[in-house]
Design a binder for these strands. Structure first.
Lengths: 338, 338
DNA sequence: CTCCTTAGATAAACCGGTTAAGTCCGGCCG
DNA sequence: CGGCCGGACTTAACCGGTTTATCTAAGGAG
């Protein structure tokens, strides 16, 4: 028992393929009676369109692509991507669009993937994540004319639409919160230097520190626990160690908490810790981490909506999705005077 | 500038489409000279096959599918899937096969996805994860005749090939290790009851406890930190609390560590903790968690290899991938006599 | 020299849809 | 009554490959 094609339906209905095609796609040129009959037969035969055939005849593939560029081991620990993917998926599956995923550990490979996917018409568009400053990929994508939405990047970047979050206001509120608790030496452990949101946060961190009379310090890590632990040890071993550290993701913050425990520095009594990217991870540890974050799955859903519209030829507008909110928990507290 | 098709190549080479097709697919019926000329032209024009067209004419789609059935928030925290996906991807991308991903929060939806994907010829085969005892999906898949590989399930299950890990030996070695440290009251916080590996581990845990003279206790959780924390609190508040707890994944173990800290129970002095699924998460916290695990990415790669072979019509054999090894770290130690 | 074989290439159908360009027919209008 | 219009369908081409059947000419055997 093969699967029915429109030709089978046409034969049973006594019409031609074209009529069936028109009927099934709600296009004019078919009488109501015929249309109803065709639909009934199609349903009865369990017909489903062949995406492949549709894609071939100029239509859409019904697939959107995502390339994630992090080494396997790093990727696993960081909840961000999985949540983003879940959110994207939830939106896409309701529209009957599939998600093609590629994991690379090389920026060059990523570009090649875009080219290949587009050449093969495998996808109708792609999500661009981990936006860097002066990102080469945006040029490639505009050059290819490939629908793409920048996740976490500013509007108008290389002409690509984007959905991003307010990175400035949260930095400010975290700083004000810590200052209100009496902290004057605050460190920031930043993520990868080239990324757009890292730069945004760096700048606002410096500015806020200046304006609030805070002595800033910090370091850079690659979102892994190991790197963050190294930076944290260095910071805490200095002559005038920070009384609060803000980490650029949850994994690094947990690692920081581990280092504090290892050095017998009580949290939050002697050290306050704030994590970016609030996830279940932050509530897993003790004390639970104060974190600034937002609903990543919802963010993914909005991004997906945007790209789906773009790929379907509908007009889209870049938008700021949300401003992350601070959830104070057990890892932050007033400075203890010694 | 459109992208070249085999018809363009044929015109330039002064032959027909068929000849070009034969030449490009290394099939006989073309002279070496002509073949070389065609290949040169194809390369020069930057030709790439249209997957869509190939898939339509009976060929393979070059896509394998994976449906993950966990709620978005749970999924994010658990490193297992992301690592598995990374491993799968690494293998697939080297073979120029794409991965289609679907995240559902409903077992029924999963089955529907299999049917749809197969009907639309969107994928050449699927990975089946989170195998349950008496899994309905294996029946559906064999009925559909859809190539599928069971990840983490026994050989011969419903006729589907599988790649799994030895779940029995590691349980035994963990128990022996803990008993050697003097533990006689050991608890196990198990994952979802219906899953195949949960049952395997449960059985061996009971058997080992009996044979080693250990008083077992335990509970069940759904791999989330919250659920694990609840179970842990109950276990530790009992009249004869366990001196060691084994958790079915890393996330729950970290949560357990958090509960211990919250209850002022020192680890490993008063309580030893062992995690299944060794990931960076285990080394993030303090003390670092003793864990039993294996290279998930490599596991994913083997699984991918298996399904790729199966989908290509090559014979495959079910195989036990590996036996997880125990990595003792700071969270386990000898029982302190009070 | 003829017949047979076969390498090398062609022609054409096919996969399952979409779509531009007809064809047919009935009704309305001047 | 003739012409025009438009609704309902049909015809046929097309998307970019694969594949089967067919053709042609050259080479070898008898």
């Amino acid at each position: 028992m093969k699967r029915p094609t429109i030709a089978d339906i046409a034969r049973r209905a006594g019409v031609t393929k074209s009529t069936v095609s028109f009927a099934l796609n709600d296009r004019p040129g078919v009488s109501d009676a015929t249309r109803a009959r065709i639909l009934a037969i199609a349903r009865e035969m369990g017909w489903q369109p062949s995406r492949t055939a549709r894609a071939l005849s100029g239509g859409r593939a019904g697939v959107l692509g995502l390339v994630v560029d992090r080494p396997a081991r790093t990727l696993g620990v960081e909840p961000f991507y999985m949540q983003l993917i879940s959110g994207i998926e939830a939106e896409l599956s309701s529209r009957d669009i599939a998600l093609l995923l590629q994991v690379t550990d090389d920026a060059r490979a990523q570009e090649a993937t875009y080219r290949r996917w587009w050449a093969e018409r495998r996808v109708d568009g792609v999500f661009v994540v981990d936006l860097r400053v002066d990102d080469e990929r945006t040029k490639v994508l505009t050059e290819l004319g490939m629908p793409a939405v920048v996740v976490g990047g500013p509007h108008g970047l290389g002409g690509l639409p984007g959905v991003w979050n307010d990175e400035v206001a949260p930095v400010r509120s975290v700083m004000e919160y810590l200052v209100a608790l009496g902290h004057r030496r605050i460190a920031r452990v930043a993520g990868l230097p080239g990324l757009w949101h890292t730069v945004m946060r760096d700048e606002e961190f410096e500015r806020a520190a200046r304006e609030l009379g805070v002595t800033p310090s910090g370091g850079t890590a690659d979102y892994t626990g190991d790197a963050a632990a190294r930076v944290t040890r260095r910071l805490l071993a200095s002559s005038a160690p920070p009384t609060a550290i803000v980490y650029d993701n949850d994994v690094m913050a947990v690692a920081g908490l581990g280092v504090a425990a290892e050095m017998n520095i009580r949290v939050p009594d002697r050290l306050s810790i704030v994590a970016w990217d609030d996830s279940a991870l932050c509530r897993l540890v003790h004390p639970p981490l104060t974190a600034v974050g937002l609903d990543i799955a919802a963010y993914g859903a909005e991004v997906a909506r945007c790209l789906a519209d773009l790929a379907a030829g509908r007009p889209v507008t870049s938008a700021c999705h949300a401003t992350a909110v601070l959830s104070p928990r057990g890892s932050t507290g007033p400075v203890q005077l010694t």
